[in-house]
Nucleic acid binder design. Structure first.
Lengths: 348, 348
DNA sequence: CCATGAATTGTTAGCGCTCACAATGACCTC
DNA sequence: GAGGTCATTGTGAGCGCTAACAATTCATGG
């Protein structure tokens, strides 16, 4: 008989109904040993009958634990951040934590600080920041907060504990693959300057070329969007026939724009110009042509991020600057490899 | 001078330091009038010095309000859910609420019920469910919970308060556009049967044809993924020359797969077959060719969803079955309209 | 038959805050 | 100068739970 009073029932109400003390109810709910089976059954029945649910705030106040983590993110509609967010929540839930998210349009010192304040007032025990901009990581290192913070997706060299896919390695894999398939030189369309990951990818690209005694050509810049890739692609098309045969694009969305621009300019991929991307978004496999790209294991990032944060919260790890690195993986498709089925060429 | 004691300072500590009562500190923090400026300044200084932050749990316990909303979602890495999630959080934050998310891999009665329990134990005052599967909405209507629940993205006919983009109208816009550009018949690649939105889109498609006295051709089914679109596209390619000139695909990702399959089969878009999608994901504009599609205003869905939920929480709206509907918008691009620049044809 | 101790249950005191109300004092009016 | 009003501040009682300790019960062995 679910009762519908104004106030939801309290532990004391349940205790009265079951004829025990509230503490016994608490023991049953807390799975304590040393509760007689008969008593436990009585309590459980009362709980069921009254539709009782433990009050979160009271519990949190008494235990001084909210078992809630905060996440600060931006660009959450993009595949990478969205995947990371998903993995973080899943990992946190597996550890019995709830996740409160704050999604920012832009990561600045102000918005970040506001977000941390907000989460702090929301009682989180720790925060994960998906903070790819260099400025954001720096801000995080500066800001005072009463809980540990772990950064994720920050690229290399963060001053705070962080978990990252090895962007440099990813870029080496892509660039190396292009060289290995016969190209003499590889161009690069990079991401925004303020993003450490963009810098890491550019570094990996440059290093790979230099190690092969190839002088890196001019570097182009985009803002991760297909449109910026499209514009860069138009510029790149102008270099075809003048030494441009391969491009490593810093993400798949821009690569999509590049592909379109090349196609419009009558440049064939991969016959005339090979294109590689980064991220392996679900659509990449169906681009025209299917895109060679670097897959990041966002699920691993999420899992490791939560693991690190919980270590910090529980005090298992000293609050140093632990850095966790995750290996990316090259996915070869038709956009760089002429011997794979290459549908785009069929009608030509 | 930030002090670093074991226990974080309490309101009483601040009060002592400022030489006032804890209640006065509370008043300052709560922006009450009737606090002398001088006193307020003293308190603020003490707060600053001690690095004091109000304890969330104690506050929530005393006020019986957590100012936290829950969101249950699935497929959060897809553009639609991710956008909705983003809009929800932003809208909630604007109203002073924090958002706790639970992202499910699959929405079943069990996982849903577990998610609601979890959020309930997390003290949320209400929940938004991004629940596109029909079974999920039904489960939601059945499940008992001690807080209001609003469904979002459920398509038509939900038995609980909900906010939706008018899917039927969107399908009519797309199908009508294809008829208007001269096609005698329009095929349809639908989404999964269990999704009400997929059913709504199929209904809108069918109704548009029937109202024009056209018999709807066989309906194909996919699962929203580019791969399922690719497979359906291969099947569709077999009907070219036998009356197939236009396809309305239930989402952009599948449309991408269809485009690829058609291209592989030597079918040109839009000259041989016109293709329209649904969602307007950021990539659509850069598909080969750019995709005509139906744009959904996810931001509006988020805003309205939060507004409705808060109405329910504050008791401003009786707990009936309010339904909010949002209009979609047709975006015409080259995949259905030969007179637009049509890059894909250039090399042919 | 009582001491012994383990198992089980109850009692009390906070956790840190807000609310309702009481108290204080300054200022004004007649 | 008594009485009233207002602005400002303080006091005490919870909010609903858990942790620590106290109390009770019961079986057991000497």
């Amino acid at each position: 008989m679910t009762q519908s009073q104004l106030r939801p029932p309290t532990m004391a109400d349940v205790a009265r109904q079951a004829g025990v003390s509230h503490q016994t109810v608490s023991r049953v709910l807390g799975d304590h040993p040393n509760v007689r089976d008969e008593t436990r059954a009585k309590v459980l029945r009362a709980i069921e009958e009254m539709g009782y649910r433990r009050n979160f705030s009271a519990r949190a106040l008494a235990t001084r634990r909210t078992r809630t983590l905060g996440v600060v993110a931006s660009n959450t509609t993009l595949y990478g951040p969205a995947s990371t967010l998903f993995a973080l929540e899943e990992a946190a839930r597996a550890e019995g934590y709830l996740v409160s998210t704050v999604s920012l349009r832009r990561l600045t010192v102000e918005t970040l600080s506001e977000a941390l304040d907000r989460l702090s007032e929301g009682g989180v025990e720790g925060v994960i920041a998906i903070a790819p901009q260099r400025s954001a990581v720096e801000a995080l290192a500066e800001l005072r907060h009463p809980f540990p913070v772990v950064a994720v997706g920050t690229g290399s060299g963060a001053q705070i504990p962080s978990v990252n896919v090895d962007q440099n390695l990813g870029a080496r894999l892509a660039t190396g693959h292009l060289l290995a398939t016969g190209h003499r030189r590889v161009w690069h369309l990079a991401g925004p300057e303020d993003w450490q990951e963009a810098a890491d990818r550019a570094d990996g690209w440059r290093a790979t070329l230099e190690e092969a005694d190839i002088e890196p050509p001019m570097l182009l810049r985009g803002d991760w969007s297909p449109l910026s890739g499209y514009r860069a692609g138009q510029e790149l098309a102008g270099w075809v026939g003048r030494g441009l045969t391969a491009v490593f694009v810093a993400n798949d969305q821009m690569a999509l724009g590049v592909l379109r621009a090349l196609r419009e300019a009558g440049v064939r991929t991969p016959q005339d110009v090979a294109v590689a991307g980064f991220d392996d978004i679900p659509e990449s496999e169906f681009f025209a042509p299917p895109l060679t790209t670097v897959r990041q294991d966002f699920a691993a990032v999420g899992k490791q991020g939560i693991a690190l944060l919980l270590d910090l919260i529980e005090g298992r790890t000293p609050c140093g600057t632990s850095q966790v690195s995750i290996e990316p993986q090259l996915v070869v498709r038709a956009s760089t490899f002429p011997y794979l089925p290459q549908p785009g060429a069929a009608p030509g």
